[in-house]
Amino acid sequence: MQAFVKTLTGKTITLEVEPSDTIENVKAKIQDKEGIPPDQQRLIFAGKQLEDGRTLSDYNIQKESTLHLVLR
């Protein structure tokens, strides 16, 4: 499924993900596309910070959801 990641600069990245993907996995995909190390990434969805060990389905993130990427 497709999900979108919006950065603070307003850029939107499109990712191909599965509901079973972990947040860690998603961060690795963002690193592949953008070169941002996962340890600098914080992903926010519905106002919550997403934890590495959880999956997209844990957070009820469905296709075409938009996550927000904040860098630390």
Rank of each mutant, 00 (worst) to 15 (best):
I61K: 03
T22S: 08
K33H: 10
I44H: 10
T9R: 10
K33S: 11
L56W: 04
E51D: 09
I36H: 09
L50W: 02
L50P: 01
M1C: 04
A28R: 15
K29P: 00
Q49L: 15
L15F: 07
L8M: 14
K48R: 12
R72A: 13
V26N: 00
T14Q: 09
F4S: 05
T12L: 13
P19V: 08
Y59Q: 03
Q49G: 07
V26D: 00
G10M: 04
L43T: 00
K27F: 03
D32I: 13
T55S: 08
Q31M: 13
D52R: 04
P19M: 10
L67Q: 02
H68A: 06
K27H: 02
Q40H: 12
L69V: 05
I13Q: 01
T22I: 04
P19R: 07
L69Q: 02
Q62Y: 11
E24Q: 13
L69D: 00
T7A: 05
E64R: 07
T9M: 11
E51K: 10
T66C: 07
P37N: 07
I36T: 07
K29A: 06
L8Y: 14
L8A: 14
G35N: 08
S20Y: 11
G35Q: 06
F4D: 03
I44E: 09
I13M: 05
Q62M: 12
I23Y: 01
R54N: 10
L8Q: 14
R42T: 15
S65V: 13
K63Y: 08
Q2S: 10
V17I: 07
A28C: 09
N60V: 05
E34I: 15
D58V: 04
T14G: 05
N25L: 13
D39L: 09
F45G: 02
I23H: 01
T12V: 14
I30C: 01
S65D: 12
T9H: 13
S65I: 09
V26Y: 01
L50G: 01
P38L: 13
V5F: 05
T7R: 06
L50R: 00
E24P: 02
T14F: 09
V17T: 03
L50M: 09
F4R: 07
I61Q: 02
E16I: 14
Q49M: 13
A3M: 15
K27T: 02
G47W: 05
V70F: 14
T9C: 13
P19Q: 07
R72F: 11
T66D: 05
A3I: 15
D39F: 11
R72C: 11
T22Y: 08
V17L: 10
L71C: 07
E51W: 06
K33T: 08
F45P: 00
Q2A: 09
K33G: 04
L50V: 04
F4P: 02
V5H: 01
I23P: 02
V26F: 04
E34V: 15
L67P: 03
Q49P: 11
F4H: 10
N25P: 00
I36P: 04
D39V: 09
Y59C: 02
Q41V: 09
R72E: 13
N60E: 08
Q41G: 03
D32A: 14
T14E: 09
D32T: 11
D32G: 09
L56K: 00
T12E: 05
E51Y: 08
Q2F: 14
L56E: 00
D32C: 08
A3P: 01
T12K: 07
L69G: 00
T66K: 06
R54G: 05
R72V: 14
L15D: 00
D39I: 10
I36F: 12
A3C: 15
D21H: 05
T22V: 04
R72W: 12
A3Y: 10
E34A: 13
K63R: 12
G47C: 07
D58F: 14
R72S: 13
T55W: 03
D39G: 11
S20N: 12
Q40F: 09
L8V: 13
G35P: 03
E18T: 14
V5N: 01
I23G: 02
S57T: 08
I23R: 00
T9A: 12
I30D: 00
Q40P: 02
D58W: 12
R54I: 05
I44N: 05
L67S: 01
A28N: 11
E64W: 13
T55Y: 06
P19C: 07
D21S: 07
A46E: 14
E18G: 08
R54E: 05
E51G: 04
S20R: 09
L15A: 01
K11M: 10
S57A: 14
I30A: 01
L15Q: 00
A28T: 10
L69N: 00
V70P: 01
T7V: 08
Q40D: 09
S20T: 13
L69M: 08
K29V: 04
P37T: 06
A28E: 10
E16H: 11
E16S: 13
D52H: 06
T66G: 04
L8T: 13
V17K: 00
G35M: 05
L69A: 01
Q49D: 15
Y59A: 02
P19F: 08
N25T: 14
N60Y: 06
L8H: 14
S20C: 09
K6W: 07
Q49R: 10
S65E: 09
L43W: 01
D21E: 09
I36C: 04
A3R: 02
D58L: 03
D21I: 05
T66N: 05
Q62H: 11
T66R: 06
L69F: 05
T66P: 06
T55A: 06
Q31D: 05
V26L: 11
T22P: 05
G47I: 02
P19G: 08
R54Q: 09
A46F: 09
P19T: 08
I61F: 10
G53H: 15
I23W: 02
I13G: 00
I44L: 12
L69I: 07
T66M: 09
I44K: 05
K63T: 14
L15P: 00
E16A: 10
G10E: 03
K33P: 02
S57C: 05
G35K: 06
K63P: 15
I23M: 03
N60R: 07
E51N: 07
A28W: 12
T9N: 13
S20A: 09
E64S: 10
Q62A: 10
N60A: 08
M1F: 15
N25E: 12
